[in-house]
Write a protein that binds this DNA or RNA. Sequence first.
DNA 1: CGGATTGGTTAGTCATTACTTACGGTAAGT
DNA 2: ACTTACCGTAAGTAATGACTAACCAATCCG
Lengths: 106, 106
Amino acid sequence: MTNQSVIDALAALADPTRRQIFEHIADRPRAVGELAGVLPVSRPAVSQHLKVLKEAGLVLDRADGTRRIYQLDPGGLAALRDYLDGFWNRSLAAFKQAAEQTPKEK
Amino acid sequence: MTNQSVIDALAALADPTRRQIFEHIADRPRAVGELAGVLPVSRPAVSQHLKVLKEAGLVLDRADGTRRIYQLDPGGLAALRDYLDGFWNRSLAAFKQAAEQTPKEK
DNA sequence: CGGATTGGTTAGTCATTACTTACGGTAAGT
DNA sequence: ACTTACCGTAAGTAATGACTAACCAATCCG
């Protein structure tokens, strides 16, 4: 609900490795070791990234024996999309106004 | 069009100062010195951030005498929103499936 | 012209953070 | 119980990047 979650989500997705993890999870739920096997980083690194993604509200986790399954969290994504939608309207208005001010654009 | 622009946009908005700059520009077009006067950083810092935002396709600039006016670029925002929308559908599907697998959630 | 205003660029410093290695902890199998 | 498999945490290091100070370029006004 807060604006901080959106900020955390943006910062979380800014890292290339975290974005790869996120995209793999988006495909289907994954275990930690499964992700580490695909990615070019160690398993602890994956764990640390998953912690960041979880705190940002982008992923959920559940236990499955000794394994831990991670999946997407719709809440974080919705917050992000709503945040960007807020700019979208203002962006269109500003762009329209600027186009009128400089009509001789190539 | 490429996926790289989306990645650049995410990384650009991850920085707190850049997000503040972006939000001020979203309010209305601004000059560089105008932004530096409001923000707690120096003018060169603002210039560097604007360069990043511009390369990410999030802002546009035009000359106005010695000043340079920056405004939002709808293209970058649209690409970002479409990117997140792609995850949104997958997220809902994954969440629904997981809810069925663990029906005894509190 | 000459000074003043406005911005972009460069060099260098400092803080943040992503990564690996090592360790501890829990659950399943024998 | 012992071993194996899987995962999170801590410590330490290397690399990324955000910032300031100094300098240079372009435009406007007297």
